[in-house]
Simulated assay, not measured.
Amino acid sequence: MSIPATKFSPGKWGEMKVFRYIDSYKLDNHNLAPITGEDEMVSMNQRIRDCIKKSTGDTVTVTLYLQSDYLYEEYGY
């Protein structure tokens, strides 16, 4: 899954940690994957598709929080 407007984000693999929801399924502490010259990506493997009962090509709602933004919103720090 490509994340729009992240093409020029600073950092290397593992430096941008995110919390995400895919539909209502919460996934903690994942890396955005940098792709040279393109927007960054997050994976949605078969295990995740099984948990949310979706298959390849189905529409999902994705919400991403940078780890620091999520911690502030949820816990105030």
Results as ranks from 00 to 15, higher is better:
residue 62 V to S: 03
residue 49 R to G: 02
residue 40 E to T: 00
residue 33 A to Y: 11
residue 39 D to Q: 07
residue 50 D to S: 12
residue 42 V to W: 15
residue 56 T to N: 12
residue 21 Y to M: 11
residue 65 Y to M: 06
residue 68 S to H: 12
residue 20 R to E: 14
residue 50 D to K: 14
residue 61 T to P: 00
residue 37 G to C: 08
residue 18 V to R: 01
residue 29 N to L: 12
residue 56 T to G: 03
residue 55 S to V: 14
residue 16 M to S: 13
residue 74 E to V: 13
residue 16 M to C: 04
residue 74 E to N: 00
residue 77 Y to I: 04
residue 10 P to C: 01
residue 19 F to D: 15
residue 31 N to A: 09
residue 17 K to A: 04
residue 16 M to D: 05
residue 72 Y to H: 02
residue 65 Y to C: 03
residue 27 L to I: 13
residue 19 F to G: 00
residue 16 M to R: 05
residue 64 L to N: 02
residue 19 F to S: 04
residue 7 K to L: 08
residue 29 N to K: 11
residue 60 V to K: 07
residue 28 D to P: 01
residue 18 V to E: 02
residue 12 K to R: 12
residue 31 N to F: 07
residue 16 M to G: 05
residue 5 A to R: 01
residue 72 Y to N: 13
residue 43 S to K: 08
residue 51 C to D: 11
residue 1 M to S: 11
residue 12 K to C: 01
residue 11 G to C: 12
residue 36 T to W: 06
residue 61 T to Y: 08
residue 14 G to F: 11
residue 18 V to C: 01
residue 46 Q to M: 07
residue 44 M to V: 15
residue 29 N to I: 13
residue 73 E to I: 07
residue 51 C to N: 15
residue 32 L to R: 11
residue 64 L to D: 01
residue 65 Y to L: 05
residue 21 Y to L: 13
residue 53 K to M: 07
residue 6 T to F: 06
residue 30 H to R: 14
residue 31 N to Q: 02
residue 22 I to A: 05
residue 52 I to R: 07
residue 43 S to A: 15
residue 54 K to W: 09
residue 3 I to W: 08
residue 24 S to K: 14
residue 59 T to F: 03
residue 31 N to G: 01
residue 57 G to E: 10
residue 31 N to T: 06
residue 69 D to R: 15
residue 72 Y to E: 04
residue 64 L to K: 04
residue 25 Y to R: 08
residue 45 N to M: 02
residue 30 H to D: 09
residue 65 Y to N: 09
residue 31 N to Y: 10
residue 42 V to R: 01
residue 76 G to E: 00
residue 7 K to C: 02
residue 28 D to V: 06
residue 17 K to F: 03
residue 25 Y to D: 03
residue 73 E to Y: 09
residue 44 M to T: 14
residue 4 P to R: 00
residue 49 R to M: 15
residue 71 L to C: 06
residue 77 Y to Q: 08
residue 61 T to L: 10
residue 62 V to E: 05
residue 73 E to G: 05
residue 9 S to P: 00
residue 14 G to E: 11
residue 38 E to T: 03
residue 6 T to P: 02
residue 14 G to A: 04
residue 13 W to E: 10
residue 50 D to I: 06
residue 56 T to V: 09
residue 32 L to N: 09
residue 41 M to C: 10
residue 50 D to W: 00
residue 68 S to Q: 12
residue 39 D to G: 08
residue 29 N to E: 10
residue 12 K to D: 14
residue 16 M to V: 09
residue 54 K to G: 11
